[in-house]
């Protein structure tokens, strides 16, 4: 069937509108604020504030996160520290950092000999693919650290609070 001139122009108009809407959306996407994340210096400053300049050794700590996190809003996280958890030798504190999150602090745990076992599980938010770091402080003052890496498919906290 042959279309009339008016019908044709109406179709053109709709096309143009769609085009305009489409390009507006594209521009909007470009203008979206960038995902903000903490700087390594921020994490270093936090660590310096918590533990001064004490030496942090690699080992004893095991951080477990899934290698691929499909949902950054809820990622299963576990931290285990090798320690007999006796009165003489136990973990007193565990701090967790996520360097790519807008705010690098994740959680801090305080435990003692009554814990029996230094093993904690929770669920965390991840603002992007990154490594999760845990530092454990023993009762003798020694510090131990470890990392775990997770690829995040859907990132949590997409908007920058500053914009």
């Amino acid at each position: 069937m042959k279309k009339t001139a008016t019908e044709n122009s109406r179709y053109d108009l709709i096309d143009r509108r769609t085009l305009i809407k489409g390009s507006a959306a594209a521009v909007g996407l470009l203008l979206l604020p960038q995902v903000s994340h903490a700087l390594p210096e921020d994490v270093e400053a936090e660590i310096a504030e918590l533990f001064d300049t004490r030496e942090i050794q690699q080992g004893k700590v095991t951080v477990t996160v899934p290698p691929i996190s499909e949902n950054g809003y809820s990622v299963p996280f576990a931290v285990d520290v090798e320690s007999p958890m006796t009165e003489e030798d136990h973990v007193v504190r565990i701090v967790v950092f996520a360097e790519e999150n807008p705010q690098p602090n994740v959680a801090r745990f305080e435990l003692g000999p009554r814990a029996g076992k230094a093993s904690i599980k929770t669920r965390i938010r991840m603002g992007g693919t990154q490594r999760i770091r845990a530092i454990a402080e023993m009762n003798d003052g020694s510090l131990w650290t470890s990392y775990a890496f997770s690829i995040v498919t859907l990132a949590a906290c997409v908007f920058d609070p500053g914009t």
Binding site: N101, A107, A115, R125, C157
Partner: peptide
């Protein structure tokens, strides 16, 4: 545990909604 603190946690915004915790005690 009978009024005595055995485990403490401090949360930040990076803890997922409906916070879940698993830990141990003797």
């Amino acid at each position: 545990y009978n009024g005595e603190s055995v485990f403490k946690a401090e949360f930040f915004a990076a803890i997922a909604a409906n916070p879940f915790l698993s830990f141990f005690t003797t």
